[in-house]
Design a protein around this nucleic acid. Sequence first.
DNA 1: GTCTATAAGTAGATAGAC
DNA 2: GTCTATCTACTTATAGAC
Lengths: 184, 184
Amino acid sequence: MERLIRSTQELLWERGYVGTSPKAIQRAADAGQGSMYHHFAGKAELAKAAIERSGAELRAAADAQLTGEGSASARIAGYLERERDVLKGCQVGRLTADPDVIADPMLRAPVAETFEWLRKRLAEVVAEGKRSGEYPDSLDPQRIAATVAAVLQGGYVLARAAGSSEPFELAVQGLIDLLPEATK
Amino acid sequence: MERLIRSTQELLWERGYVGTSPKAIQRAADAGQGSMYHHFAGKAELAKAAIERSGAELRAAADAQLTGEGSASARIAGYLERERDVLKGCQVGRLTADPDVIADPMLRAPVAETFEWLRKRLAEVVAEGKRSGEYPDSLDPQRIAATVAAVLQGGYVLARAAGSSEPFELAVQGLIDLLPEATK
DNA sequence: GTCTATAAGTAGATAGAC
DNA sequence: GTCTATCTACTTATAGAC
């Protein structure tokens, strides 16, 4: 069951929902058809479990970077510049390209919640930066939070298009250049 | 032939390469199998023609916004705030989620070229802004160009995840807030 | 719980008539 | 140029044995 979920996460990441067949999942998990259909009602149920797991992983990784000491800009820059397998893309953001995920409330919900959480968490960090005097009062935390999240997701898109992580890194550095600086 | 290409563009936009079958294309174009295979060697050839067309459309639309009078910031803001069907996403960026597109040089090339062109064009506008004194000398055109393109692509991702165009608009406004202002 | 058998439907293409 | 027939493989399950 554990292997089924992990294999589904990996396949959804690589090939998306439409491109992932139950058979491929079984092969990757080294499990039979009977086993899969015993634990999960079908492809959608299994995908739901996998997406929820991926969302939890993304939140945990982001929270680790955004919580702790350091200025708001330093924490945001740390999050932006963290080691990533850029050409693989984002395992959660990737699913927004899947029409069957977007159309099914059960599958879209964990994706929506993950990015809602991320934007809220980033907005908190920006708000802290305003309170500490690091950022001007005019800065809108919700806007900046969305911009930061978008640069990452869009950076993946540009990198995969180019076949190189360079555009991702340019986009991230460009955003860091634009953010008001504390000590940086 | 024209209808085949247009229908393929539409289906690639909605469902991606993996999610689009020759049969679905024929149905949408109201063409028979024989007709499709007479004009194109197969699914990949047809997709190539459709992607090239979509890339040309994206370039034309962006160029129209970025060329002309107005400060660099005004033109960039105009491009960012242009009317878009946000929840549909980007017809070219969307394809970066398709493993079969990324893996096939013939299919990835038009996607890569489109975004290379876009980043170069945006960098030119930023460079013009520097020359006119609108932007400080420290600003890196290539970085800012990548950031602008990434905010759009990432904005689509966030919007589709949320089922609302709001995060897209927040991300765009956040970026405009961060860009050095001329008259704005 | 896991396995194998079976099945209706689709994917992607080829063949040959018209 | 376009049509219909045909084909192999894969998709997404269900059924029932073990």
